[in-house]
Design a protein around this nucleic acid. Sequence first.
RNA 1: GCAGGGGUGGUCGAGUGGUUAAAGGCACCGGGCUGUAAACCCGGCGGGCUUCACUGCCCUACGUAGGUUCAAAUCCUACCCCCUGCA
Length: 313
Amino acid sequence: MQENKSNNLRHIIAIVGPTASGKSALGIEVALRTGGEIINCDSVQVYQQIEIATAKVPFEERRGVAHHLIDFVSPIVTFTAVDWARTALQTIGEIESRGHVAVLVGGTGLYLRALRHPFFPSPATDEDLRQRLTRIRKRYGPERLHRILQKFDSDEAAKLNARDWPRVQRAIEFYLQTGEKISSQRPLRPSPPDVATRLRVFALNPPRAELYERINQRTDEHFANGLVEEVRGLLDQGVPGNTSALGAHGYRRVVEYLNGERTLEGAIEQTKLDVRHYAKRQLTWFRREAGVEWIEGFGEDQQVQERVLALLH
RNA sequence: GCAGGGGUGGUCGAGUGGUUAAAGGCACCGGGCUGUAAACCCGGCGGGCUUCACUGCCCUACGUAGGUUCAAAUCCUACCCCCUGCA
């Protein structure tokens, strides 16, 4: 609606908050009014071929605003926070070279943090190694991995709960791949890129009860719109049921249903729970994220949109 | 109508005289999180007061009303409601 204002160029806008809080609607409005382009900051929307339960904004509803880092990764690979940060940084540069404002939209707190506070250097995941460790975990339990880590990096093992297998596993992988203890590498974080200092982070905080109600309804809609068929199609195509993409909310429980591990009713109810729990964790995450400007309400609300726009001027 | 089973905290569900504000699960609330993050982990959870804290105290609570007992969610009596079998 408005021409770019040069003073906006100094800012990179981020719109975060719990799932179903209206981030996308707010993001599009802000992008329209500031001459912005959107960069997706959601760990699931990056994947192609998963659609119904991802809340990706359909092309027709983007109101002409360019969207990046959405729908561009094969669902059989695992896209990581570092992958995202690297790609996002590059995309921000491209957007700004066009004289536009970058608007980050999404609820994956770790991704945003990976951009603001780059992680210490580390080799890419070794999938074979990860599979081997996964096999150990499934056969002997997560405590077994923890005991292994104790031998390699007792400092790290002491800090981690024995059942916190993703971190334990990661620490073992790091040691086996580099010969270094992850605990000793932590302090070696690169300094933040300059975009980090130009970031304005707005977090939506809608009324909790209404948010939960929306999540429940949205989940029912996803199933009514053919989520089960979508998952069945992906599995038939040969997408493994244990990929990151199919671990997303909705997909995960449907895979279990199709494997005969739960009823359809159970899958729906469990999905609602998963998503509500997730929304809560997102709120917790952003609460302690530095420099966040909290906005009460849902992102579709015009008054909320005006409030954010006003803060930008 | 008769026989049998049952009514417990937001919910499911243990508990059959004291060590029970009542196991455990779930919901809900809070916290953590550095290359799988829509992942994963930890804590709280009847109310009020007290201590910096370890703690301590009071009130309310196991369908309802009454009773037995030093002491009851647990035993007895009556009533209400639910389920199953017989008719």
